[in-house]
């Protein structure tokens, strides 16, 4: 074998340091790996409050009330407006034409559909796990006034959902 001439020696790319980096990233990502039942579509319109609770979320009908709209299980139901009060300050509110008293009619229709769907599943499977418990996950923006929350809760109550689970960011992790 002939000794290679000095000029033609090609050094191999040293990827050891890159491997080091990847190993660290891999460990970090594996640590933060999780498969949760629910997910939050983070956006500027939806900022959940932070709480000290440690109860883990479970799958249920998902109602998202952001600053601008109401969404049920991923499909938009209606938009929210802003109404000024007597001092001129604007508050997020449900448009009057969408309401019948305190009940939000379009949201009611959608939730009733969900409730009936859940009951059909409960009947078909006849298992304790799928029984209809009237559970509803509420993801609400932290700046929403209570009047909007109350109307959504009232509507959900009318549609046979009476167990509310407010989704929050956990501060103890």
């Amino acid at each position: 074998m002939k000794k290679p001439r000095r000029g033609t020696v090609t050094d191999e790319l040293n990827i050891t340091s890159m491997m080091d980096m990847f190993t660290i990233i891999l460990v970090f990502l594996l640590k933060s790996y999780s498969t949760e039942d629910i997910s939050v579509a983070a956006s500027g319109d939806l900022e959940l409050p932070v709480s000290t609770t440690m109860v883990k979320p479970k799958l249920a009908v998902n109602v998202v009330v952001s600053k601008s709209s109401i969404t049920v299980d991923g499909s938009a139901v209606m938009a929210l407006t802003k109404k000024p009060d007597e001092t001129g300050k604007e508050w997020i509110a449900v448009p009057d034409e969408e309401k019948k008293g305190q009940m939000i009619t379009r949201l009611y229709d959608r939730l009733l559909e969900k409730a009936e769907q859940a009951k059909r599943i409960a009947e078909a499977t006849a298992s304790e796990e799928h029984a209809f418990k009237g559970e509803i996950l509420m993801q609400c923006d932290k700046e929403l006034p209570f009047s909007v929350i109350r109307e959504v809760m009232y509507t959900a109550g009318q549609a046979q959902f009476s167990n509310f689970r407010f989704v929050v960011y956990s501060s103890t992790s």
């Binding site: 990847f22 949760e36 479970k58 689970r165 989704v167 929050v168």
Partner: peptide
């Protein structure tokens, strides 16, 4: 292997922990 694993884990990574508060009507 690692460069396939990293995008996959990045997608499943969760940087905020969610929790719920129970309440009834």
């Amino acid at each position: 292997l690692v460069s396939i694993l990293i995008p996959f884990l990045l997608m499943a990574a969760q940087f905020v922990t969610l929790a719920v508060i129970d309440s009834t009507l």
